[in-house]
Amino acid sequence: MSGFHVRTATKRDISAIDLLLARSYPALLKADYPPSVLVTALPLISYANPGLVTCGSYYVVTDEAGQIVGAGGWTRSAPGGGGIQSGVGHIRHVVTDHRATRQGVGRKLMTHVIDRALDAGVVRLECLSTRTAEPFYRAMGFNSRGAVDLTLRPGIQFPAIDMWRVQ
Rank of each mutant, 00 (worst) to 15 (best):
residue 11 K to I: 15
residue 115 D to P: 00
residue 155 G to Y: 05
residue 107 R to M: 02
residue 107 R to P: 01
residue 95 V to Y: 07
residue 24 S to E: 12
residue 68 I to G: 01
residue 125 L to M: 15
residue 89 G to P: 13
residue 18 D to R: 09
residue 152 L to N: 08
residue 151 T to K: 14
residue 122 V to E: 07
residue 85 Q to H: 14
residue 35 P to Q: 08
residue 17 I to D: 09
residue 113 V to R: 01
residue 59 Y to Q: 02
residue 116 R to C: 00
residue 15 S to R: 14
residue 94 V to M: 13
residue 51 G to P: 04
residue 51 G to Y: 11
residue 146 G to W: 10
residue 89 G to D: 12
residue 115 D to Q: 04
residue 162 D to I: 06
residue 91 I to T: 08
residue 56 G to V: 12
residue 76 R to T: 12
residue 86 S to K: 15
residue 109 L to P: 03
residue 167 Q to Y: 11
residue 78 A to K: 12
residue 25 Y to A: 05
residue 93 H to I: 04
residue 86 S to E: 15
residue 55 C to L: 10
residue 114 I to R: 00
residue 27 A to H: 12
residue 131 R to S: 03
residue 81 G to E: 09
residue 151 T to D: 12
residue 157 Q to S: 10
residue 13 D to R: 11
residue 129 S to W: 12
residue 119 D to I: 01
residue 166 V to I: 08
residue 57 S to D: 08
residue 60 V to I: 12
residue 67 Q to N: 01
residue 86 S to Y: 15
residue 48 A to N: 05
residue 6 V to N: 08
residue 92 R to L: 11
residue 48 A to H: 07
residue 140 M to C: 15
residue 89 G to A: 13
residue 126 E to L: 15
residue 166 V to F: 07
residue 94 V to N: 11
residue 68 I to Y: 01
residue 146 G to E: 08
residue 68 I to E: 01
residue 1 M to Y: 05
residue 38 L to T: 00
residue 11 K to E: 15
residue 131 R to V: 11
residue 8 T to I: 15
residue 49 N to T: 07
residue 26 P to E: 10
residue 152 L to S: 10
residue 8 T to A: 12
residue 65 A to F: 00
residue 64 E to L: 00
residue 28 L to F: 07
residue 72 G to M: 09
residue 128 L to G: 07
residue 14 I to H: 13
residue 50 P to C: 05
residue 86 S to W: 13
residue 164 W to A: 07
residue 164 W to D: 13
residue 154 P to T: 06
residue 159 P to K: 04
residue 28 L to H: 09
residue 153 R to Y: 07
residue 53 V to H: 07
residue 81 G to C: 12
residue 142 F to A: 10
residue 43 P to H: 05
residue 32 D to V: 02
residue 115 D to T: 04
residue 64 E to G: 00
residue 151 T to I: 15
residue 72 G to V: 09
residue 134 E to M: 08
residue 61 V to P: 04
residue 155 G to C: 06
residue 60 V to A: 06
residue 31 A to R: 13
residue 37 V to R: 00
residue 6 V to R: 06
residue 157 Q to F: 08
residue 114 I to Q: 01
residue 8 T to D: 09
residue 84 I to Q: 09
residue 143 N to G: 14
residue 165 R to H: 10
residue 80 G to W: 14
